[in-house]
Computed example of a mutant assay.
Amino acid sequence: MLAKAKIILEGLDDLTAALKGKMNLSEIPQVVKKHGAQLSSRTQSNMNAAYTHGYSTGRTRRSVKPVFSDGGMTVSVGPTTDYFPYLEYGTRFMSAMPTLKPAFDVQSQMFINELKRLMQ
């Protein structure tokens, strides 16, 4: 069984401190909700595009749902199928079909930009 992939954003403590000093944190859960939903949608869209040339039941795509915690301050998004890492990273028999990382790369920058705007 493969270990789950973990993506860590550096500098979140500094960002949190800056946010606490410059804005009302009550807006953050809405921003987290918005970007969590968009990350989920973007990942599913990437899966639709990646899997059009091969066999797909859609199970992995359907398993991508945002899960909120910490009073809406945290969101986790990712497929829950056991075989997702094989699809994302490939195997020696199959090429990688990255869907989550490309979605995260785009969405995380949009999320950070929106938080920065709120700090002004």
Rank of each mutant, 00 (worst) to 15 (best):
S69H: 01
S76T: 14
K6P: 04
E10A: 14
E88F: 08
F104R: 00
L15C: 05
L115I: 06
S76P: 00
G72Y: 01
T80Y: 07
S45W: 09
P29K: 04
A18T: 01
Y55K: 15
D14G: 12
D70Y: 03
T60F: 09
T91K: 03
S69V: 04
S76K: 15
L39A: 06
H35K: 09
F104A: 11
T43P: 07
Q120K: 09
V106H: 14
S56R: 01
T60A: 15
T81N: 03
G71H: 05
T57I: 07
A49C: 04
T16C: 14
F111G: 04
A37S: 12
H35P: 06
I8E: 00
F93I: 06
A37E: 15
M110V: 12
P66G: 03
E27Q: 13
Y51P: 05
H53K: 10
S63K: 07
D105S: 13
A17H: 08
I7A: 08
V77H: 06
Q30D: 15
S26N: 13
S69W: 00
E114G: 02
A96V: 01
L25K: 11
F68K: 02
T80P: 08
S45I: 01
G11I: 12
A3G: 08
F93H: 06
S108F: 11
L9Y: 09
V64K: 08
A103V: 02
A5F: 00
K22T: 12
V106A: 15
L118S: 07
T91D: 00
Y55W: 10
R62N: 06
A49Q: 06
N48E: 11
M47W: 01
Y55D: 11
P79I: 10
R59G: 12
V67E: 06
R42H: 05
V64F: 05
R62L: 07
H35D: 06
S76A: 13
Y89A: 01
K116T: 10
F84A: 14
M73G: 00
L9Q: 11
E27V: 15
V31Y: 03
V75D: 04
R117A: 15
A18N: 06
S76H: 14
F111P: 04
L39F: 02
Y89N: 08
G71N: 10
V32A: 05
A50T: 05
Y51E: 07
P85I: 08
K116H: 02
T74A: 10
S108A: 13
H53D: 13
G78N: 03
D82Q: 11
D13V: 15
M1G: 01
L115V: 07
E114N: 01
L15E: 05
L100A: 11
